[in-house]
């Protein structure tokens, strides 16, 4: 063992990982089988054949309902520091008041997970990136905190962490000095669950949110996108967003 360990460069981590996975699968009896089955290996994880998307029917989205926002804040422990200007918000409710008719309706605004995200284009280090399954993320290990992505986002979807944080959730690492935004709850989606906001919208809210794979013809979201009218916000920018709205 010590002989091979001194030869640091030659350790083939890929092969090691493969073998480890094999051994782990064989010894799988002791594991939570569902968990293991749902967890995807790198071969099948977020293949290009998947594009996660969210359809929001604003007719069902109640003015004053905040279920999705609270669920997100709890899931990722977005603490309230009593400083609204600098506190992070990954999802927020917008009340739209028509300038002519004063009609009010409400919708949640979050990272739109664009196919052509401006934040990814402007990021100097490549920390802003788009996974093959369409989810736009910040690699907080290479983010230097320049905030250019926040300038470039047409949806104001990103927050900068302005203070030292403690009590992070293990599935949602967050820390001072970098930019962050909605992750579409990758930790859930990767293991076969739906994002916290969507779950809450159905449990406590108006059931306005439909999450799913936009390119799978079997999924409800792609059925509805085909058969019902919907729109993107700032469609003039041709970003092909992953979040679509109805009745706006």
């Amino acid at each position: 063992m010590s002989g091979s360990s001194e030869n640091l460069g030659s350790v083939d981590l890929k092969r090691r990982k493969f073998m480890v996975t094999m051994v782990a699968s064989m010894a799988g009896a002791g594991f939570n089988l569902v968990e293991l089955a749902m967890a995807k290996t790198s071969l099948e994880a977020e293949s290009k054949l998947v594009r996660w998307g969210l359809l929001i029917d604003t007719e069902k989205c109640g003015v004053g309902c905040n279920a999705c926002v609270s669920a997100c804040n709890t899931e990722h422990n977005l603490e309230d520091h009593g400083r609204p200007e600098t506190d992070a918000q990954w999802i927020r409710k917008l009340d739209l008041v028509d300038e002519q008719t004063s009609h009010v309706h409400s919708l949640p605004m979050l990272c739109q997970h664009c196919e052509h995200p401006p934040c990814v284009d402007v990021c100097p280090t490549g920390a802003s990136f788009r996974r093959d399954d369409g989810i736009v993320l910040v690699d907080k290990h290479t983010c230097i905190g320049c905030r250019y992505c926040m300038i470039a986002c047409p949806y104001k979807a990103r927050s900068f962490i302005h203070e030292n944080l403690t009590n992070q959730r293990s599935w949602s690492p967050r820390g001072k000095g970098v930019v962050e935004s909605c992750t579409f709850c990758t930790h859930r989606v990767d293991t076969g669950r739906i994002p916290a906001c969507v779950e809450a919208c159905h449990a406590e809210g108006g059931g306005a949110m439909t999450f799913g794979d936009m390119v799978n013809p079997e999924s409800e979201i792609s059925h509805r996108l085909k058969s019902e009218p919907s729109r993107q916000i700032r469609e003039d920018l041709k970003l092909n967003t992953g979040v679509r709205y109805q009745n706006v």
Binding site: P84, E85, Q89, R92, K93, L94, D95, L96, V97, D98, E99, Q100, M109, P154, Y155, K156, I233, R234, V248
Partner: peptide, 14 residues
């Protein structure tokens, strides 16, 4: 400019 023709209210200074 996010929703032309609409006034926006939010807790995020929209």
């Amino acid at each position: 400019l996010m929703f032309p023709g609409k006034q926006i209210r939010s807790t995020f200074f929209d």
